[in-house]
Nucleic acid binder design. Structure first.
Lengths: 159, 159
DNA sequence: CTCAATTGAATTGTGTGCAATATAAATTAT
DNA sequence: ATAATTTATATTGCACACAATTCAATTGAG
């Protein structure tokens, strides 16, 4: 109790930094969850989870790619992607085939159903935009800032 | 192939919105993971995972609270918190006791070790700040924007 | 006062996320 | 050409995250 009294008198910068409200990181973390919850009912209709949706977005842009490529684009590793991709294959949205050129490589290709799902997915971003209650311009500006932050963090991780 | 040719000619707004790079949501999602990876080595020294660290931050601010309270502050439910809190109890950082007033309520209190860990944790925010390579002002501004977005998303979820 | 409805935690089941390890294929170095 | 190293994916184990369910305790309407 004595030390608490002393602490209360000198609130250091370190103390302030430990406040939950001050942490950008918690802001990002909790916003990611909020997005996930908004996406859930929309993606349920497509039979996808949010990470699966991200994989499909990546594949709709470029198809017939190694797992490695997908991992680099989504910042995910094989421990995450392998089971996820097996579920997408079980749902017959993708096909996994080992490359003949390099037997280590597994190529991910969309099935006709996988391609077709893109049309149903087109409605999703609009609903998200509505839920965010922002203009496209505001969201894009914020996105650019966040991506810049992410890239700096990833740069530190790569030594 | 024919339909692809037609698609290429008329790139609609819906097509653009499905691009991975354009999704603020992916920006938030991937930044949360990047933060997690930066935090990992720092929190390993405290013996905490990132969600456990968030719980400790919350408890360092206010102690002796029901699980429900923690859940509301962190946007997490009992399915996530119950096992996490059991691990913190096993690590002797917190104590879980059923309230005598309302037997349904489980109160979470810090142990002396739990309180003590706060001192070691003070170094963490500084390291994160350094990794983010931003000024405090920039981070706070970005944090406020992201929190505003999160709150709007959560508002939609609450009907 | 009583019994149905509500509430707070815990449990169960599914799906990430990642570290650590394993394995097989390809590359390089000798 | 063969051993050592590197590379791409898979596996295992642990820790979230959340929907759905369960269960006990409390509240509230009649």
């Amino acid at each position: 109790m004595d030390s608490m009294g002393i602490m209360a008198r000198k609130q250091t910068a370190a103390d302030q930094a430990l406040r939950l409200d001050n942490q950008i990181c918690f802001a990002v973390y909790s916003t990611a969850h909020a997005f996930n919850r908004v996406y859930k009912p929309l993606l349920d209709r497509l039979g996808l989870t949010y990470p699966q949706y991200l994989v499909m977005l990546a594949l709709w842009e470029r198809d017939d790619v190694p797992v490695k490529d997908l991992g680099e684009r989504l910042f995910l590793d094989s421990g995450t992607l392998t089971p996820l991709l097996k579920r997408l294959e079980a749902a017959e949205l993708i096909k996994r085939t080992r490359s003949t050129e390099d037997e280590r490589v597994v190529l991910i290709a969309l099935t006709p159903q996988g391609h077709a799902l893109r049309e149903k997915a087109k409605a999703v971003p609009q609903s998200i935009l509505a839920a965010s209650d922002c203009t496209v311009g505001e969201l894009l500006a914020m996105k650019d800032e966040i991506v810049a932050l992410r890239d700096r963090l990833n740069a530190v991780l790569g030594e």
